[in-house]
Design a protein around this nucleic acid. Structure first.
Lengths: 346, 346
DNA sequence: GTTAGCACTCGCTCCGACTGAGTGCTAACA
DNA sequence: TGTTAGCACTCAGTCGGAGCGAGTGCTAAC
């Protein structure tokens, strides 16, 4: 037995209906509600039986309708990918509006992107920034905050990414810090964040006049070095969206899901980064995360500064509105890639 | 009929039990499980009937036990206030550990505080920072980020509070920006954030050489001016904690609650600021927020830089573990006041 | 190949019986 | 006069059976 055009049409109808209602779909529903060539429910029934044998449908119990399997969703999403859906102009304008181009802080940009996508799709959204270590230093600035402390600002090709406070000698003037910043920028420009610390250590001796600042700078960079090992900024939007789906009406399930979102480490492992423009679909246990057995996740990648990859993931019930999600993701990855490329050009 | 010592003991027992179990408490339970002078359930029953008449207990239906009323909780909390509970050293050490003293960015500090309190109490926590407009400017720094943009950093007596990007002329050097920052700081130091913009407008003409920077600075400050009207930083921690309580096992209720947390504006109205060290308790509808009918909220205030008040609020089910929450809040407000006072002294 | 018809399955809902925790009242006791 | 044992009463929750209805699989006819 083979998959044919008619079976495919029926399967699509079933998936569409299930996405809409979250209820097992019966043969009569398909026959009446969807245009599948005016076939009677009996014929549909035969076809559905075949589709089940082929592994595309599951039956919760004998007297219920049928439910699409993971295999079916995968087929469905693949067919959508080829159709290359475009976001209606109204929606893309709205998204653009939520993402003020003014944000240069990576943190804020990612945060906004996560919220915008979550709102547009109605699902939970996770955005991962580019890997910290890979970013290239554009400049370092040390700005006095008080007599004893200063703010360390690191500007990279991807964004302004980190600001920690460091301690300074009492009486250190803004001018002195300015000079140090100048020199550091000259020396370290172009290195990746991962390379800064070792280089800085080598420079230690040349900067005796500013020993205190250097010491505390080294410490701060060491901290960044450690923190940034294999790390990237992660933002989550619309965590509570999942609650509106009957799949998560059980409070316990909802709680494990929401707790999972708060454990950033787990999220990080979830956000594997692919190549730009390629979508990855993971269904249920494939995500490898506890509490996501009833979820599916679509991930798409973007690049910052033309090279550092990051990713956006939309997490929803398995019966997600894949078409719409794909459109939003396509738009947003393009937008982020452009925005972050532009900022690197500036 | 009057409230007496014995009635009070019984009421406390009922509240304690209800906080623990979330189930109406019967006379037998009080008699057996709690030490209220070895009275029989019949006696307790009479007392409970009196307590109901006095408005301290409610009865969901005839054959159920009794449930404390809002009036009862208020009495309970008041008695706890006098007892002045101290946090066990282990817990305070843990809290201290979560709040790295290194954070000078108000945003981060508040965020951490919200999460730490949420974790310590197991309830949802909202932290409101000091009012933006009231803070006094310590210095302004403009730091180049790229050829066309610079980061505006405003340091106030309470914290480093805002960083927006502004546009600069192509070819503006770091030195030029440094000089402008210098001058602006000299001119504006000591003003409140609310006063900066008007003053800056007056200065406009004196700065012809840096017209572009000034223009964009004015625009940025205008934006801050508008945004900061009556505003303060708000951070939320442990939003999903509410889900573990049977009061919120209904997915719909949980959703409205979580949505409420995302609407920062509503939260802001919720966080009325009182005097330092004073606790405010609001129960159910008193909060004035839809979706919080089954919640109670305890708020405590702290001061930043010895004068600007902010507040921490813990939101949980009405049957909250008030004793513990009060201890945590007492610790945290003291901690925040100290941390923010020290940073203003530096 | 398609369809009408029919027997069969099985989760859901409605309903009445039963259970048990808890109350209020009364009468007796210290 | 306060306390307690006893008892009738209340009522939400649970359990189990009946009935319903959506849906299936199979068969026979078109």
């Amino acid at each position: 037995m083979e998959m044919d055009e008619r079976k495919l049409r029926i399967l699509h109808a079933i998936i569409d209906d299930y996405i809409l209602t979250a209820m097992p779909v019966g043969s009569r529903t398909v026959s009446k509600k969807y245009n599948v060539g005016g076939l009677s429910s009996a014929t549909i029934r035969n076809e559905m039986s075949d589709l089940e044998a082929l592994g595309y449908l599951d039956q919760p119990h004998t007297s219920a309708g049928r439910v699409p399997s993971a295999k079916a969703y995968r087929l469905y999403v693949e067919s959508l990918l080829n159709a290359a859906p475009k976001l209606p102009p109204g929606e893309s304008a709205k998204l653009r509006g939520q993402l003020s181009a003014r944000e240069r802080q990576l943190h804020d940009l990612i945060e906004r992107a996560a919220h915008a996508v979550a709102e547009a799709t109605g699902y939970t959204t996770v955005v991962a920034g580019p890997a910290t270590r890979e970013q290239r230093l554009r400049s370092i600035q040390i700005v006095p905050v008080s007599d004893h402390t200063a703010l360390l600002i690191i500007v990279t090709d991807a964004a302004v990414f980190k600001d920690t406070t460091i301690r300074t000698d009492e009486g250190t003037t803004a001018e002195q810090l300015f000079v140090v910043s100048r020199m550091l920028t000259d020396q370290l420009q172009g290195l990746t964040v991962g390379e800064i610390w070792p280089r800085l250590k080598g420079m230690q001796s040349c900067l005796r006049e500013h020993a205190r600042v250097m010491y505390s700078l080294l410490e701060a960079m060491g901290r960044i070095e450690r923190d940034s090992a294999d790390s990237r900024e992660i933002a989550v939007g619309g965590g509570s969206n999942i609650l509106q789906f009957p799949e998560y009406s059980d409070a316990n399930k909802a709680r494990t899901f929401l707790n999972m979102l708060e454990a950033r480490e787990k999220l990080r492992t979830l956000m594997t980064i692919g190549t730009e423009g390629v979508f990855t679909l993971r269904i249920g246990a494939e995500t490898g995360i506890q509490g996501m057995e009833d979820c599916a996740m679509i991930t798409a990648s973007y690049t910052a500064a033309g090279e550092h990859p990051g990713a956006i993931g939309v997490i929803g019930p398995v019966r997600m509105r894949y078409g719409h999600v794909l459109s939003v993701l396509a738009f947003m990855t393009r937008y982020l890639s452009e925005a972050l490329f532009m900022s690197s050009e500036l």
